[in-house]
Amino acid sequence: MARPLVADIDLDALRHNYCLARELAPHSQALAVIKADAYGHGSVACAAALESLPAGVRPPAFAVASIEEAEALREGHIEAPIVLLEGIFEAGELARVEALGLWLAVHSEWQVNALLAHRPARPIPVWLKVDSGMHRLGFTPEEVTDVWKRLTESPECVTAVQLMSHFATADAVDDGYFRQQLACMRELAQRLDVPLCLANSPATLAWPEAHGAWVRPGVMLYGSDPLEVASDATRRLKPVMTLRSEIIAMRDLNIGEAVGYAGRWRAPRPSRIAVVACGYGDGYDRHAVDGTPVLVAGQPASLAGKVSMDMLTVDVTDIAEAGIGTEVVLWGEASNGRVLSVDTVARHCDTISYTLLTGVLPRVPRRYLGLDA
């Protein structure tokens, strides 16, 4: 019998979340972001599931972080255009960009020079990255006009130039900085008469004025709420990954007896402790505190003691039916339909859902549901 830990990937939920992004931005095209192996969900399977949507609904393009991620999609028979969000990392990659039919973000002078010197057989669609306030990648607003002219005046090399930027605070209640970035990009787009791609997941969910020609739904595709305060839109998201395991052992403790490394948790009453097959060696966060929620037999329970490499321990004193083989959901949807949000678990680990989802390691099997849609 195999170890019971599995990551169930609900492809119907993925399709639902993508369609929600399209519904929220009906006048924009929706670029489906599937970098980092689709945030840990499996990029080829997720891309194929989204490509199975009807014509006119399926994504017009996907987005990844590197050419290696793009190659994996092409090897998986994904045919849609793919945007390299960070562009090339060295000039020699441009031949592979051409061969794979990729779209290219450019954010640095050397990338522009390399592209214009390359002379591709067919012009490459370019997404010109602007640093509107994130201060990571991109040209400053003052530099953009000159770079845009150089690109658009080289039609043998470049086609379909668009402006792209990234919001630093679109998830926040305080919208002051967000609006500064938005105003900067709107001014550039109006002056240059060029399409905009601005809206990440939080802006897609909460800021229609930022939608532009393209939106870039990322973590929302996988059912995570990126906003500081939940909204009607985020409450419609469906969890895609359920990290599911079982109880593999039970322990009865007296008052004051400790559990796990360093004896961090001590029984405040006569207690029943369940040992669950999941640990930081699987990607479950070792920083999870006592009281981090889990679902046992579809009922709320909580972590008791430090997470180990291959196991964690849960207080099931109040769950009479808990026993060896009982279902445990670390996040996602239990068999009885109760949902434990990955965002809730992340808060107990002092992190964000992105790190939990992308951190599920390869030794955890992915089981895909909804393949035949």
Rank of each mutant, 00 (worst) to 15 (best):
R122N: 13
A91G: 07
V33C: 00
V339Q: 14
Q299A: 15
Y261Q: 08
N17G: 07
E109H: 13
P123H: 08
A72T: 13
Q29N: 06
L303Y: 02
V275A: 15
R251Y: 04
R216N: 09
T313M: 13
A45C: 01
G281R: 05
G212D: 01
A63C: 14
T326R: 13
H118T: 03
H287I: 02
L137K: 08
L20M: 09
L84K: 11
D193S: 15
C197K: 08
G138R: 02
L14F: 02
Y39I: 15
I124H: 03
V194A: 14
S308P: 01
L340E: 07
D372G: 09
K35Q: 10
E51G: 15
A61S: 14
D131I: 05
Y18I: 05
E187M: 14
E153V: 07
H107N: 12
S108G: 03
K149G: 00
S28G: 06
V161I: 06
Q29G: 14
V294T: 07
E143C: 14
V97L: 02
A160G: 08
D282S: 15
S335D: 14
R347L: 13
A301S: 13
W127Y: 12
V106H: 05
D315H: 12
T234L: 06
R179V: 01
P125C: 05
D315S: 03
R58T: 07
V161Y: 02
V6C: 12
G87L: 06
T326M: 09
T326K: 09
A91M: 04
L24W: 00
L100C: 04
